[in-house]
Amino acid sequence: MKVKVVLSTTLLFVLLLAGCTPQQGPVTQQPKPTQTSEPDSVSTASIVGDEASFEKAISDSGTWLIALTKDLTFDKELVLDGVYTNGKKDENGQEIIQRKIGLYEQDENRNITARYTLTIPKLTINSPNASIQHGTFKGDLYVSAKNFQLIDTKVEGNVYFTNEEAQSTFKADEKSSITGKQELVK
C-alpha cells in the first residue's frame, strides 16, 4: 500500500511538473559560458533515486531541478555545474536562471511528505542562482557562484566561499542552519 502511495505521489509530481513546463522543443546544450548569465540549456526536472542519476543530473548536461526520492551518499567530491533556466520568465520577459537540489518529496498540494539527507564530502556550487531545499546536507559546500541559497536546509558541515561575490550574495532562510564555519577561502 505504501509503495502505491509513493509511486502515485511521484507520478503526480512528474505530471504536474511536465504540465506546468512550457513546451519549447528539444533541449539543446550550448557551449559552456565563462560565468555569464546565458543558460547552458533549458530543461525539466530530474527525479533521482540513485547515485549515477544524481551525478548526471548535477552535471553541466543535467537538469535545472534535481529532486531526491531517498537518502544518497557519495565518497567523492562532486560539482553542481552549468547555467539553467526554469522555464519561467521575469517581469522583463527574460528567462529565469535557477538551479535547485530538492531534498524532499511533496504531495499534490505542495505539502512536504518526506525529507532526505544528501551526504557528499565536498560539493562545489558553480551554477548561479542555485539552492538546496528542505532536507539535510552532510559535508562541506564550496560556493563559487552568485546567489546561492539554503532554504529550510540543515548543513552538517562548513560553507566556504571561493570569491567575495559568492559570499556577499549567499542567503539562508530562518529555517536553515549550518553546524560548521562560513568563511571566504581563496
Rank of each mutant, 00 (worst) to 15 (best):
M1G: 11
K2Q: 13
K4H: 14
T9P: 00
L11G: 10
L11N: 14
L16H: 14
L17W: 14
P22Y: 04
Q23P: 01
Q24A: 12
Q29D: 11
K32M: 10
Q35T: 12
T36Q: 05
P39K: 10
D40Y: 11
T44F: 04
I47F: 04
G49H: 08
K56E: 13
K56P: 00
D60E: 12
D60K: 01
L65V: 14
L68M: 10
L68R: 14
T69N: 10
T73V: 15
T73A: 15
D75L: 12
D75W: 11
V79H: 15
D81M: 05
G82I: 04
V83Y: 05
V83N: 06
V83K: 07
Y84K: 06
T85I: 08
G87N: 15
G87D: 14
K89F: 09
K89S: 12
K89M: 06
K100Q: 14
K100N: 14
L103K: 02
E105D: 13
E105A: 11
N109K: 12
I112E: 07
R115A: 09
P121E: 07
T124E: 09
I125T: 07
S127N: 07
I132R: 07
I132E: 04
Q133A: 13
Q133N: 13
H134S: 15
H134E: 13
H134P: 01
F137C: 02
K138N: 09
K138S: 09
G139E: 03
L141W: 08
V143E: 02
V143R: 03
A145Q: 04
A145S: 06
L150W: 06
L150C: 05
L150F: 03
I151S: 00
T153G: 03
G157P: 03
V159E: 10
S168D: 11
T169A: 04
F170L: 03
E174C: 01
S176E: 10
S176Y: 03
I178A: 00
K181L: 01
Q182G: 01
E183K: 08
K186W: 02
